[in-house]
C-alpha cells in the first residue's frame, strides 16, 4: 500500500529549480532513504511532503490526501523533524515533550511506549533545559517530540548530519526499532553509507531523482568492473588513468582510488600496467560497487 505518492512534482525558488520533475512512490511501513549531496533538493522535497511548501506543479498525496487541499488531515498523522534543532531551548526536556504532545492533542503517557527506548537515556535530564543538552541528546529529544503523537508518517530531514559516528549508528538502530510499529519513515541523508540501512532509497541530485529502488538491487545495476587501488601517488595516477586504461569513471574514496573500465582486464594485467609506469601499489583489488560508486556512475552518465 502506498504511503506517499508523488507525481511530476516541480518547485522553484526564483530561478533555482529545487525539485524538478520528481515522481516517486513510498510504501507503507517502509524505511525510505532520500540520498544526495547538499543542495540536491532533499529538504525542499521533505517540506513539500510535509505540506509546508506548495508545489508549483504536480502533486503529492500522503495516505491518499492531497497536500494542497487536505493538508489538515495530513498534519494529524505527520511527524516532522527538521534538519536544524527546532525545539524551545529555554524549556526543559520534559516541558518540550509535554508541549508537543498537547499541541497534537495527546499526552505523554498515551504513547510513551513508542518513545520509551529513545527517551529512557534522557529521563535523568528531564529537568534540564533543552538548549543545554549535548548534540546526541538533543537529537533523541527531537525524535521523541516528533514521535510523541504516534504519527503514521515520520519525516526526518538529515537527522545524522553533524553527528558523530557512534551516535549515527545508534540513531539508525532507533529507526530500525520503529519500523515494526506500522510507521512509514522517510529519512534524508548526504551519507551514502547509510543507504544500506534503508529498505528502499532514491538517489537525488539537482532536484531530480536519478534512480530509486532497493539498495542491493541498485548495486547490481552497476556497469563494468570496479577496481580499488591504494597508492601514495593517488593524484598523479588519477590523472593518468584515462591514458593507461581508457578509464571512464574514477573517484577518490577515502585514501583509495576507485575506477571502472569498459575493457575487460584481469587483475594481473592491471598490476602489470601500473608497474610498467612505476606507480607503487599498496593494494589492488576488484571490489563490489557501493552506493556511492553507483551514485557517481549514474550522476556522470
Amino acid at each position: 500500500m502506498t504511503a506517499i505518492s508523488i507525481q511530476n512534482l516541480h518547485k522553484s525558488f526564483a530561478s533555482n529549480r529545487a525539485v524538478n520533475e520528481v515522481s516517486l512512490n513510498i510504501n507503507r511501513g517502509e524505511l525510505f532513504g532520500l540520498i544526495g549531496p547538499d543542495g540536491a533538493g532533499k529538504t525542499s522535497l521533505m517540506r513539500l511532503i510535509a505540506s509546508l511548501l506548495l508545489p508549483d506543479s504536480g502533486s503529492v498525496h500522503v495516505f491518499g490526501f492531497d497536500t494542497r487541499r487536505d493538508y489538515r488531515s495530513i498534519r494529524k498523522q505527520l511527524g516532522y523533524m527538521p534538519g536544524r534543532f527546532s525545539l524551545y531551548p529555554d524549556l526543559t526536556v520534559e516541558e518540550n515533550l509535554h508541549f508537543w504532545a498537547t499541541v497534537f492533542g495527546t499526552t505523554i503517557d498515551r504513547h510513551y511506549h513508542l518513545i520509551e527506548q529513545i527517551y529512557k537515556p534522557l529521563e535523568p535530564f528531564k529537568k534540564r533545559k533543552a538548549g543545554q543538552l549535548s548534540g546526541g541528546m538533543k537529537q533523541k529529544l527531537a525524535l521523541s517530540c516528533a514521535l510523541i503523537h504516534s504519527p503514521s508518517l515520520l519525516l526526518l530531514d538529515e537527522p545524522t548530519t553533524g553527528v558523530d559516528a557512534v551516535s549515527r549508528m545508534e540513531f539508525w538502530d532507533m529507526l530500525q526499532g520503529l519500523k515494526g510499529k506500522d510507521m512509514t519513515l522517510l529519512v534524508s541523508t548526504p551519507y551514502m553509507d547509510e543507504a544500506d540501512l534503508c529498505d528502499r532509497i532514491a538517489l537525488m541530485q539537482q532536484g531530480k531523482i536519478l534512480s530509486a529502488g532497493n539498495p542491493h538491487h541498485l548495486r547490481t545495476q552497476f556497469i563494468g568492473r570496479l577496481w580499488e587501488v591504494k597508492t601514495p601517488q593517488i593524484h598523479p595516477l588519477k590523472q593518468r588513468l584515462n591514458a593507461l586504461f581508457g578509464c571512464e569513471v574514477a573517484h577518490l574514496f577515502g585514501q583509495c582510488l576507485h575506477w571502472t573500465c569498459q575493457a575487460d582486464m584481469s587483475i594481473d594485467k592491471v598490476e602489470q600496467v601500473l608497474k610498467q609506469f612505476h606507480i607503487p601499489i599498496d593494494s589492488l583489488r576488484e571490489i563490489e560497487p557501493g552506493i556511492e560508486d553507483c551514485f557517481i556512475q549514474i550522476a556522470r552518465s
Binding site: A50, L52, R75, P82, S86, L87, Y88, V103, F104
Partner: peptide
C-alpha cells in the same frame, strides 16, 4: 528563528 514555527505549522494548531 528557532525553527519551532515550522514545527507548529505542521501541527494541527
Amino acid at each position: 528563528e528557532l525553527g519551532t514555527m515550522e514545527q507548529i505549522n505542521v501541527s494541527p494548531i
